[in-house]
Every structure is written in C-alpha cells, then in structure tokens.
Simulated assay, not measured.
Amino acid sequence: FFKTKSCLEAACLAGAETEDEGRGASWLRQRVAELVADDEQLRNQLQDLPDDYLTGFTPESVARHLQLHRKHAGRLQQRVLLFPEARRGYWSLLMLSKDRAGLLAKLCGVLAIHNFSVLAAQIFTWPDGTVVDVLDVQPIAELKFDEQNWQALEEDLNKAVNYRFDVGLKLHGKKQGFGLGPKRKIQQLQLKVVLDNESSRKYTIIEVYGADAPGALYQLTQTLSDFGLDIHRAKIATEVEQLIDIFYVLQRDGSKLVDPEQQEMVRTTLLKIIGMDEIE
C-alpha cells in the first residue's frame, strides 16, 4: 500500500514508460532469472513479461507467479484461481486467470459481496493473455484469516465470470447492510476524473478520485467495461477513505479512447458514480 501511495504522490504512474523503469526492470529480470535458473521454460517466459509488471513486484513474487502459472496452466483456461495470504494488518489476494471482458469488475463486486474492503491493487495482463491481479484487502467483519471461506469466494467469482451469479443484483441487495452507521465528513475529499492520452504511448489513462464506499470499485470498473474499454493495468489505493484509482485502458479494437464525445460520456458517468457517495 505505501509503495503504491508513494508512487501516486510522486505521479510516477502517469510516467510509467521511462528509462529508469527500463533499467529497474532489467535488474529485476536478472534477479528473477537467478531464482528460476534451473527452469528453462520459466526463464524464457520471463523475457516476455512487461517492464511495469516486473517493477511492481519483488523478484520472489514474480518467480512465484511464474511457477503458479505453469503449475495450474490447464485449470487457468477454465477457471479463475485465487491464492490468499495473510499479511501484517491486511490480507493479500493473488488472482490468476485468462483475460476476460469485465473480469476486474466482477472481482471487485464479488469482494464487496463477501464484505471485503480493497486497500490497494495492482492489475496486469501478460502478453499471453494471463491476468495477474494482486489485491490487498481487509474484511469489514471481524474475521480471522482462517475463518474466511476462501473456497466460497473463488466459487462465486467463477460463477460471476460465467454469468451464473448476478453481481449487480447481489450488491444492490446488500446496500442496506453496508450503511451500518452514520457517514463521517471527510476533509479535503477529492472528487474528479481525468482522462490522459499523453502520458502513455499505448494506453488511455483514466484517473478517478472519489470517496471510498462499498461497491464503488465494482461500479467504476463495470462502467468502463460497459463503455467497451478493457483494463490492461490498474493501480488502486485507499487513504483515509479517499479512493484513488488509475486505469490503463484500450478500446476493444486495441486503440486508445480519443473520440472527444465518448471521452466526455465516460468522464461524466464516472463522476456521477463517485458523486453518489459524496458525504454531505
């Protein structure tokens, strides 16, 4: 979380494609190669991984992602797999899957349904179409890590991606349960949406600043999917109930979002979403 927060404050997300990142990725690639030195297949796959993905994780984490991907390659063609870990003060969820339209929205929605708050997230798609998402979460209820039904969470996510679980309807039914107490006024809360086609050569970058509220991530990511935008990278952070989301998106044909009219429609719709939960 603090790494993501520092990166956001330094505006490094908008300038991801830099020479410094390239040098850092080269060093990290060498470290990962040492960890998988006895496995030629993983070393070859490592060479294709994007620089921004490599700089987002430790060498040990990248090596683990590669090993899990190969171990479960067959299942990943059919299912979304979750690998939870208990960390100090939060839980980390690694999600591996083949890329699917609206995948991130469904993941965020299912997490909200299961009473999780997302503290931070790193979302990547490998060149072979493998999605590697790592989300830092906290349970809204007072549950211990081993009390959480992780199998049920994974099953609901797989039902959702296969259109056998209506995430939107389930979230609507939980709205009353989310509002368990009076909302506190948040000082200096930012509510804005920025579309940027200059900072990245490849992607349209959409920055969203709003109030952190249950289901907000689902609404935002589902809206982008509804507009025909695929999320290839994302950085999500929450600080004192301020939600900061940065999405790297492309249209379904692989092009940037450049049409001014559609840009305004996306911006206006996202503003309505984050404005709905604005604290009075």
Rank of each mutant, 00 (worst) to 15 (best):
Q219P: 01
D146L: 05
D51R: 12
F227A: 08
P59V: 09
F145Y: 12
F124Q: 02
Y163G: 01
L153W: 09
V118T: 10
D259A: 13
Y163D: 12
G129Q: 03
W150C: 04
R70D: 12
H69A: 14
E261F: 13
S6E: 11
K272P: 00
T125Y: 01
I186C: 08
K185R: 10
Y248D: 05
L68S: 07
A101W: 02
R43Y: 08
R23C: 02
A86T: 03
L195D: 08
I206K: 04
R184M: 12
E34C: 10
D277S: 11
V131D: 00
R100T: 05
K174F: 04
D99K: 07
V167W: 03
T55Y: 03
F1M: 07
Y248P: 00
A213T: 13
V132L: 01
E155H: 09
P139H: 02
F57M: 07
I123N: 00
D259W: 05
Q30L: 14
I123L: 00
V266Y: 04
E147C: 08
Q78P: 02
G22H: 13
W27Q: 09
Q78C: 13
L257S: 05
R252Q: 14
S92K: 12
R79N: 11
D136P: 04
V134W: 03
R267K: 15
L8K: 10
G179E: 12
L28I: 14
A16Q: 01
G56A: 14
L46N: 04
D196A: 03
L96I: 02
E85D: 09
W91P: 03
D48M: 09
A234I: 01
